[in-house]
Amino acid sequence: MIEPIALQSTLETVRFWAIVLCLGLGVFFTLVSTVGVLRLPDIYARAHTASQTDTLGAGFALAGVALAFGWQHAAVYTVLLLFFVFITNPTAAHAIARSAAESDVEPVLAEEGEADDAEVAAETEGETR
């Protein structure tokens, strides 16, 4: 009875690399999101990319966790966790954008001339706030 063991060990390897892939993608999207928060001009644009962390960043990380847990009850919790993240993340992003709009933060828009100028203007503005 050698074959079943071999099959099981290949499955284990596949699972291992699937976990690694999920965590890697999660880290990648979180990194992109961080880069985005640093590079983008104003609070509205940054809110877009901040939600990337929560959607795909947390999504892939939690998928990796669920895979690592395997077929047990704790894996259900990670799905639930993701569900709640998906409800709270847009709510928070909307709250931030809305309060920015209410405190009269002007968005940097594409029509406002050169993108570079707008970026610089927004950066200095962001610092004074």
Partner: peptide, 16 residues
């Protein structure tokens, strides 16, 4: 709808 729009990066509901 507003939450789904905000959830997809690239679109963000500012006001409803």
């Amino acid at each position: 709808l507003a939450n789904s729009i905000t959830l997809t990066p690239g679109t963000l509901t500012v006001r409803a």
